[in-house]
């Protein structure tokens, strides 16, 4: 077994605007099972940050416990990282975000870490609209403890052992929309073509960007009868709308027919262009988004793509009117402005 990847890379590998190759965004070699969907998500995260030319030290990656939460070791080896307690990633992310709003926060969690032990934390970080990317690597089972059904396993789905799931599943995307997330998307680890622009859009979005990625567990939950297997997802995937992500700096070259294409601008000036399907409503309407999800479910389909998007959202800092300067950059001078200021403040309260 190899404990590290060979150091050589393709000599003609592309460089991004910062002059880095993809290698600068890689991490250690994966220790997950061969063929794990999580590895593909990792690869898409690497590509997204590489192609967006984000300096690795501008990113903080946070995770809880589980197969999914091991993955931050496999990407962005030169970023900040915190592997927290089971289900408690959102709290740590909130604390970090409060202290330094200048970093990009990438939370990685799993279906167990989010939909079971971390459900309370998940609900609150979403309703606070913390400025972060919250990725759930969703395989419908507890891979680290031999594949027991998780809370996102669909009712009736059969894993390797053959027993159908008896409980209702939790749809994290629907829940996130209900809880007030302004960017909610669902991807599939086996479809990088869709996942990559989705992650880029999530990175560009200000506020909570929730991305649920169906990621087959090749070891315990990849039987054809499982609704989280490669083959089932491929057969039942339905995209809300295909879309392109156009970063701010890039000129929009493609001419779209305005009848079928809806551009959505994000706060940083980048644009998502949605190629509307004839029978679909646009996704910026909360009610329609939830309807679409439910309708797809009724047809035994998995709806993927950007499910709901409210581009001009207010994040936790906006709501709390916190200082623009990250806390870690405030000196004693700003924090203790002196008697006069205190006096004036006290007077204003009288």
């Amino acid at each position: 077994m190899s404990y590290e990847r060979p150091k050589f890379r393709h000599p003609e590998a592309q460089k991004n605007k910062l002059g880095y190759t993809r290698k600068a965004y890689e991490g250690a070699i994966s220790t997950l099972c061969a063929g794990c969907g999580h590895d593909s998500i990792v690869s898409s995260i690497i590509t997204a940050f590489f192609e967006m030319s984000i300096e690795p030290h501008k990113v903080a990656k946070l995770s809880g416990i589980g197969c999914s939460s091991k993955t931050p070791a496999y990407f962005l080896g030169r970023s900040h990282g915190f592997n927290s307690v089971h289900g408690r990633m959102p709290s740590v992310a909130t604390g970090a975000n409060m202290a330094n709003k200048d970093l990009i926060y990438l939370g990685v969690s799993g279906d167990g870490d989010t939909a079971s032990i971390g459900m309370g934390q998940f609900a609150h970080v979403v309703r606070r609209n913390l400025n972060m990317i919250y990725i759930v690597m969703n395989n419908g089972c507890y891979g680290l403890t031999k594949g027991q059904d998780s809370a996102t396993a669909d009712k009736g789905s059969k894993s390797r052992k053959g027993a159908p799931v008896s409980f209702e599943s939790i749809d994290l995307c629907e829940l996130a929309i209900l809880l007030g997330a302004d960017f909610v998307a669902r991807g599939f680890s086996g479809d990088k073509k869709q996942l990559l622009p989705m992650l880029k859009a999530a990175i560009s979005h200000k506020g909570m960007a929730f991305v649920d990625v169906i990621s087959p567990c090749v070891t315990f939950n990849n039987a054809p009868t499982s609704t989280k297997s490669y083959s089932w997802v491929r057969d039942h995937m339905e995209a809300t709308a295909t879309f392109d992500f156009i970063p701010l700096q890039q000129e929009i070259l493609t001419e779209y027919d305005h009848g079928s294409t809806i551009p959505v601008s994000l706060h940083d000036g980048s644009v998502i262009t949605l190629h509307k399907r004839e029978d679909k409503e646009i996704i910026t309407n909360k009610k329609d988004a939830i309807n679409s999800l439910e309708e797809a479910k009724a047809r035994d389909q998995i709806l993927t793509g950007i499910l709901y998007l409210k581009p001009d959202s207010e994040d936790f800092h906006d709501i709390n009117q916190t200082t623009d300067t990250p806390l870690n950059q405030l000196t004693e001078k700003e924090l203790c402005p002196g008697d006069e200021v205190l006096q004036a403040f006290n007077d204003s309260m009288r």
């Binding site: 990847r5 060979p6 890379r9 590998a13 063929g35 593909s40 990792v42 086996g190 490669y230 083959s231």
Partner: peptide, 15 residues
């Protein structure tokens, strides 16, 4: 092949 992309992701020289 189940097209999981694991080989693409791990290949050091992007072959």
């Amino acid at each position: 092949c189940i097209e999981c992309d694991a080989c693409v992701d791990v290949c050091p020289t992007s072959c």
